[in-house]
């Protein structure tokens, strides 16, 4: 039912693309990150919270059909519904059913509860298209709860030493997860503009997160001992200078590797990911009951071979042009 084309994953029967990277007439968008949600589509179909994000990023005049999770639409006989992917707020797996055949496109997902987005739900299907960002057995992440205590412990120690704490994570998704779990009794929380903007968008859907926008007028004395949440792009910029003295940490699944951690030149790396790790990927694939698996976005080759050898599945690697190569991502 689905084809992997130059423009993206395509359903000819419904004439709809999923996360296309070139303008098409009709696009289903799994979530609001910019490598999945691109501008120029005739019509968008996505979860209602993703719609908020798309409008703020791509303009209020785009045409969007909004769905709740589990709610279905029919396009030329194809029944299409969205299901929680647990990646970020509004992220969805796409289920397509036609004449008894069921496909699920995972988009980006994780199977642990981050306390912010609706947790991932396995969706039974015959054909499963899965990401594989962390599709190697070296990526087995610690429990998020343990990571949050580590982050808070580090913040408390820094604050006690009179040093500020800068936490870097994507403005949309990771930042909110960090903010939700920071222990506000330790000190004040401040936000980089990009994070404050993302929070403002999500506020219209009723999400509330702690932290004040760090404006140029914010005094050094006010920031003392604070945690400041900023996107990774703030690393090595002059914006950081007014936060001195500070210690800085990156929050990312890539921090699992010592080399990456050290290369980024940060004081700490916290393994906190919005993608599934090796164990989660395996569990997710098995839970769908799918006999055919298509592996994209990451370590396609090794993970597909593993699924074939180990689980006896029909698994193939799919190289999507728009997918950022693993090596390019942070």
């Amino acid at each position: 039912m689905l084809k992997f084309t130059e423009r993206g994953v395509y359903c000819p029967q419904a004439d709809v693309y999923i996360d296309p990277w070139e303008p098409v007439e009709r696009a289903i968008v799994t979530h609001g990150h910019s490598d999945h949600a691109r501008r120029g589509m005739g019509r968008y179909l996505c979860h209602q919270h993703t719609a908020l994000i798309l409008r703020s990023r791509l303009g209020v005049d785009i045409v969007i059909q909004e769905l709740a999770y589990q709610q279905a639409v029919s396009i030329n006989g194809v029944r299409i519904s969205l299901h929680p992917a647990g990646h970020i707020i509004g992220s969805a797996q796409v289920r397509l059913a036609y004449k008894g055949e069921v496909w699920v496109v995972s988009g980006d997902y994780k199977c642990v509860n981050d306390g912010v987005s609706i947790p991932y739900e396995p969706v039974p299907c015959h054909h499963f298209v899965t990401e594989s960002t962390f599709g190697l057995p070296i990526y087995r992440f610690p429990q998020p709860g343990a990571v949050f205590s580590e982050i808070n412990g580090w913040w408390a120690q820094n604050a006690a030493e009179g040093t500020n704490t800068v936490l870097l994570g994507y403005a949309l998704g990771k930042s909110q997860v960090i903010l939700r779990h920071l222990d506000t009794s330790i000190g004040p929380i401040f936000l980089h503009g990009a994070v404050a903007n993302a929070n403002a968008v999500l506020a219209s859907a009723g999400y509330q997160f702690p932290g004040d926008y760090l404006i140029p007028e914010t005094g050094r004395q006010t920031v003392k001992g604070a945690a400041i949440v900023a996107p990774p792009s703030a690393l090595n910029t002059s914006w950081l200078r007014k936060l001195m003295p500070y210690r800085i940490a990156l929050c990312s699944g890539w921090m699992q590797l010592r080399g990456t951690r050290r290369r980024k030149g940060v004081d700490r790396g916290f393994v906190l990911s919005d993608h599934a790790d090796w164990d989660q990927l395996n569990r997710a694939v098995i839970a769908t009951g799918a006999g055919d698996v298509y592996v994209t976005h990451g370590y396609e080759g090794p993970f597909a071979r593993w699924l074939r050898d180990q689980h006896g599945l029909q698994a193939s690697e799919v190289h999507l042009r728009g997918a950022a190569t693993v090596e390019d991502e942070l």
């Binding site: 190697l136 057995p137 070296i138 590797l257 080399g259 090794p302 071979r305 593993w306």
Partner: peptide
């Protein structure tokens, strides 16, 4: 083979 593949990445 998967061990080797992973080792190369690390």
């Amino acid at each position: 083979w998967l061990f080797e593949e992973s080792y190369h990445i690390v």
